[in-house]
Design a protein around this nucleic acid. Structure first.
Length: 192
DNA sequence: GACCAGATTGTCT
DNA sequence: GACAATCTGGTCA
């Protein structure tokens, strides 16, 4: 069950990104359940962050990013990929945390099927990969993570010594900010 | 093992 | 019309 309160997402966005590490995210669908432990995240700081989609203000595309904290923001990129974010901060700030990688624990077979791959390490080791593995699509954009039978999030803490902070990946602007967090030594992160 | 280019489409300038 | 918070497969060393 989801055991996280709305307040969890009202902390400073980098703190939320950090706190999400170790939490277990599960997604239910008609074909079964799938999910895993969050091992890598990135923080995006809305209007203060040139790399964030919300930097230039709200548009139809980024509407969900400006919504209620704890909701989901799904975006489509590079013509063929979708990525999963969790909205943070007060309504209207445009903050979000990008889920970059999971350690598969639930529905591994289902995820292998969706991804067309058999190596567990290739199922969720990247933002577009995990979205595909969990069956998350644009129709999930704007869903409430806390009040939705489709998603579950269970809080689990991780020792500070197990968390590594680095710069973000795959972006052009603001790439030097230390807003990426991952679990040290995990073989499931997108990049060591 | 490391690096490079292609795929493919919604969104904003 | 150009770009984008990516992934995959190919080439070369």
């Amino acid at each position: 069950m989801t055991n996280i309160s709305r307040d969890f997402f009202l902390k400073p966005t980098p703190a939320v990104a950090r706190a999400l590490l170790g939490c277990e995210l599960t997604c239910h669908s008609t074909t079964g359940s799938s999910g895993g432990i969050i091992v890598e995240t990135e923080a995006y700081l809305g209007g203060d962050d040139p790399a964030a989609h919300s930097y230039r203000g709200e548009t139809p595309r980024t509407k969900a990013m400006f919504g209620e904290p704890g909701h989901i923001y799904v975006y489509f990129i590079y013509g063929m990929h979708t990525c999963l974010n969790v909205v943070t901060g007060p309504v209207g700030t445009g903050h979000a945390v990008l889920i970059r990688a999971l350690e598969p624990t639930v529905g591994v077979e289902l995820m292998k099927q969706r991804r067309g791959r058999t190596e567990v390490g290739e199922l969720c080791s990247g933002p577009a990969k995990l979205a595909q593995a969990l069956g998350v699509t644009l129709s999930d954009n704007g869903s409430d993570l806390l009040a939705n039978s489709r998603f579950e999030l269970s809080e689990k803490s991780v020792g500070t010594e197990a968390v590594v902070t680095t710069t973000r990946i795959g972006i052009k602007k603001g790439a030097n900010l230390p807003l990426r967090f991952y679990i040290k030594g995990s073989p499931f992160v997108s990049k060591a």
